[in-house]
Design a protein around this nucleic acid. Structure first.
Lengths: 128, 128
DNA sequence: AGTTATCTCCTACAAGTGTAGTATTAATGG
DNA sequence: CCATTAATACTACACTTGTAGGAGATAACT
């Protein structure tokens, strides 16, 4: 079991964590630059968010010069797993099908996506 | 456009709203009974949550005797749409594919689900 | 009628969240 | 060396959230 019980992330924290993942590792500046222009947070705000994520155990940092370089303290996959599960259980009582169905009906995923999915499923069935 | 801009729901509020959907309409008591036994909230707590959901525009209520009977003020589908979109954008930058992929890899959806999905997609393609 | 069970309404309150200011310090460009 | 720049650390503060207590009204039981 890889599961420490983590304090849950707030929505904004989640946004920030995703950006760290995107860059693998990042400083406050870099995250700030990655923020979409319609959502520029103050430097200090980003700093606070990163540090809260660290307190909660999602990130850690090393020093590089005077700057903190933040990186994942937990595997992305594990975070996704619990985050998605929580979401699923709150909005759909834990059943993923309505979610996938919604995605399909809403045109968010198309037939090609589905074909790729099928492969994935077969692959993981065989490797099991 | 059906979109009023709603204040977003907190996680617990989302849980409660889902239960209202499940019952179509519900009183505080009924919601309380639906709560899983490991998560019994006080009567007043449920009441607060329902009333906050109403303030935020997700629910409305009518009187039946002295009790409030709460029901959806917005179509479930619309709520799901924005909730899922928000979630997607926070955790995956808006791209649904990693989500679906995760669900598949994690065994949350299987090949049958996918087949049903395919039908759905074809149906909506034709009706478009 | 008095007691009990239900309800709503109003209030509370600590912890979490979003968002950032101020102080301090270290590096850097002249 | 000194002003500017770029970082962190610490502090702040209103709003939201989770969770519920108490007061008061009404219906129902005895």
């Amino acid at each position: 079991m890889v599961n420490k019980i983590l304090k849950s992330m707030s929505p904004t924290e989640t946004e920030i964590l995703r950006l760290v993942w995107e860059l693998k590792e990042a400083t406050v500046q870099q995250i700030r630059e990655l923020l979409p222009s319609e959502r520029k947070l103050a430097y200090n705000t980003v700093q606070t968010l990163l540090s809260r994520l660290e307190q909660k155990g999602y990130l850690n940092h090393r020093l590089e010069g005077k700057a903190h370089v933040y990186g994942p303290a937990i595997k992305q996959r594990d975070v996704i797993k619990t985050t998605v599960s929580d979401f699923l259980s709150r909005l759909f009582g834990g059943d993923p099908k309505p979610l996938v169905q919604f995605l399909a009906e809403d045109g968010k995923i198309d037939e090609d996506d589905i074909n790729r999915l099928r492969e994935l499923i077969n692959k993981s069935k065989n490797s099991k």
